[in-house]
Amino acid sequence: MVVGAGWALVGGIVGCLVGVAAGCCVWRLRPGADRKAEGEAAEAARQLPLAADLLAACVAAGAGPVVAAQAVGESLGGPVGERLAWGAAQVRLGGAPADAWRRVGEIPGADALARLLDRTAESGSPAAGPVARFAADCRAEQGRTATARARRAAVQITAPVGLCFLPAFLAIGVVPVVIGLAGGLMSGQ
Rank of each mutant, 00 (worst) to 15 (best):
R139Q: 07
A21N: 05
L116Q: 15
L54I: 05
R102K: 15
V177T: 09
G162R: 07
D34G: 05
A41G: 02
D137C: 08
L117C: 14
A98R: 15
Q189P: 10
R133E: 09
A135N: 04
G87S: 15
G95V: 00
D118T: 15
G15C: 09
R28P: 09
A121N: 13
I172K: 11
K36D: 05
A89V: 11
G12P: 12
V175E: 00
A171Y: 11
V72H: 06
G173A: 02
R102I: 02
R28H: 13
E106V: 04
L76W: 04
R149H: 09
A112D: 10
G23M: 06
P79K: 11
P49C: 03
C164Q: 03
L54S: 12
A112P: 02
R152E: 08
G95Y: 00
D137M: 10
W101F: 13
A52N: 02
P176F: 03
I179V: 15
E141V: 09
M1G: 15
E43H: 04
E40C: 07
F169D: 01
G184N: 06
A153H: 07
A45G: 05
L166A: 12
A22R: 01
A114W: 06
L113A: 08
A71L: 14
V2N: 04
L117A: 12
K36P: 04
G180M: 01
E122H: 13
A88P: 14
L93N: 13
V10F: 08
V80I: 09
T158E: 09
I179A: 07
A148G: 06
A68S: 11
A148R: 11
A89P: 03
R30S: 10
P126K: 09
L76M: 13
A100W: 04
P49S: 01
E82Y: 00
A71P: 02
L181G: 11
G23Y: 09
C164R: 02
L84T: 06
P176M: 01
V18K: 03
V26C: 13
A41D: 10
V104Q: 12
A159M: 13
M186Q: 03
S187P: 00
P126E: 07
I13Y: 14
A33L: 05
V2D: 04
L170E: 01
F165V: 14
V178R: 00
P97D: 01
S123L: 15
G19W: 03
M186D: 02
L48E: 01
G105A: 12
G78Y: 15
G23D: 10
I179N: 01
A33Q: 06
